[in-house]
């Protein structure tokens, strides 16, 4: 048998890679495409000319910029709160000795198995009574801390050698000083992992905003898009422009920080 001039694995990977990438390419191209190119038969893949009508239509006919801003706020609060609260709790459960520690940690572990769908109904009732429904707080409060985040940080802190902390303590640091100056700077990989997961989860969440928010000016971008689709389901350039707005921030973040993303998935997968 004659050898191929390239590895046979390319025959598998090249079509697959195109299959995964081309829909996204088409999404971007369609967002910049004139309606005439989209609604003709057979449809065009490469536009005859590029134009911004999809984006202009999207921003004129919906509050997409507002939704994007809402999502940025929700995700930023979610990530910052996760980093602060979960790393502190993780450190407490990993290193400090205190009354009720094991009971507290067991309770947190138990919640990992509870699916979000189970919590939707009582959380909705609870948030209604607290006056949180139809506010941005409804979207970010469930993302302030998570059992997964606490668990992840605890596992990471347990893997650090304790000697460094002992040395800092002998030098006169108090507990918070040790945590802040010695431990946190070492925890960058775990903090990056936590950031990636919280960002992905809070940015892409759909079902909870769908339940908790009905005021259009409070929509997150995912909720806005899903509802916008319901009313404009043939205006593809607008819808694809919305898709570009909703996905590009994360895709760009992914390409910039690809190494960290992959390390994150690996980390979570193996420690899962």
């Amino acid at each position: 048998m004659r050898r191929l001039p390239f590895s046979p694995w390319h025959l598998l990977l090249m079509p697959l890679a195109l299959l995964f990438a081309l829909p996204l390419v088409q999404m971007v191209l369609t967002a910049f495409m004139p309606d005439g190119d989209i609604n003709r038969f057979p449809p065009r893949f490469i536009p005859t000319r590029l134009q911004l009508d999809g984006f202009i239509g999207l921003f004129n006919e919906s509050q997409a910029l507002r939704w994007l801003l809402n999502t940025v706020i929700v995700s930023a609060i979610a990530v910052i709160a996760h980093l602060v609260l979960c790393s502190m709790a993780g450190y407490g459960f990993a290193r400090l000795k205190f009354f009720g520690k094991n009971a507290g940690f067991l309770m947190i572990l138990a919640t990992i198995m509870i699916p979000a769908q189970l919590l939707m109904i009582p959380t909705y009732v609870m948030f209604t009574r607290l006056g949180l429904i139809d506010t941005l707080a409804a979207a970010f409060v469930p993302w302030l801390a998570s059992a997964f985040g606490i668990f992840l940080m605890r596992q990471f802190f347990l893997s650090l050698p304790a000697e460094l902390e002992d040395a800092a303590r002998i030098d006169g640091c108090n507990t918070f000083g040790v945590f802040w100056r010695v431990v946190l700077p070492l925890a960058k990989p775990a903090l990056a992992t936590l950031t990636v997961f919280t960002l992905l989860g809070s940015w892409n969440d759909l079902i909870w905003p769908l339940v908790a928010i009905s005021d259009e000016s409070i929509y997150t971008i995912q909720l806005g898009l899903a509802n916008f689709q319901g009313t404009r389901h043939t205006q593809w350039s607008l819808l694809m422009a919305g898709n570009v707005v909703a996905t590009m921030p994360l895709i760009i973040a992914f390409i910039v920080a690809q190494r960290q993303f992959v390390a994150t998935m690996t980390f979570s997968g193996l420690k899962g």
Binding site: P23, Q26, W203, A226, Q229, A246, L250, I255, F261
Partner: peptide, 13 residues
């Protein structure tokens, strides 16, 4: 990359 795209965007696409 598709893993990063939200389910909402994926569904619409």
């Amino acid at each position: 990359i598709p893993f990063v795209a939200s389910a909402a965007a994926t569904g619409i696409l």
